[in-house]
């Protein structure tokens, strides 16, 4: 009975959110724009990357900013054969948790490794920034990480 069938329509939920970032995230994003990677020292002395106003485990205030990277180690990774439309790369890539040199926590980003045989846990990778003119102060200022030696 057509009268008692449900109608359908497409619905778009869209908003251009604009977020104030505060001093700590702001320092990291400013660093990215300048081609640097920044961490912050936690209460116990460990270096947290990306930096937050708080220690990710205890919630205590964090302290001084420190420079980290540009290289690091892949702690774990996942291979994406078919990237979703909004993801950073439009060709196959790996998501990875990367512990940057000098850091005690790992950062999530993509590794542009070419094929799944070219990445493994424990591999060293290094950052590939976008061209300076294209950097705006966001995570996307890092185009990708790449296997060390291939940059």
């Amino acid at each position: 009975m057509a009268e008692h069938e449900a109608l359908h329509a497409s619905h778009v939920l869209e908003y251009p959110y604009s977020r104030s970032v505060g001093p700590v995230i702001g320092a990291f994003l400013t660093g990215l724009r300048e081609g640097r990677l920044t961490g912050v020292r936690g209460a116990g002395g460990s270096v947290i990357v990306p930096p937050t106003e708080y220690d990710p485990t205890t919630g205590e205030d964090t302290g001084e900013l420190v420079e980290v990277g540009p290289g690091g180690v892949v702690e774990t990774w996942a291979w994406v054969e078919q990237p979703l439309p909004k993801q950073p790369l439009d060709h196959p890539f790996a998501w990875a948790l990367i512990r940057l040199d000098g850091a005690d926590t790992a950062l999530l980003h993509v590794v542009d490794a070419g094929d799944p045989g070219s990445i493994a846990t424990g591999d060293r990778v290094t950052v590939r920034f976008r061209p300076e003119a294209d950097r705006v102060g966001s995570m996307a200022d890092i185009e990708a990480f790449v296997p060390e030696g291939s940059a």
Partner: peptide, 13 residues
């Protein structure tokens, strides 16, 4: 009207 000096976590903290 706008706490443009903090992140969400910063404001809540």
């Amino acid at each position: 009207a706008k706490r443009d000096d903090v992140s969400i976590a910063g404001m809540v903290r």
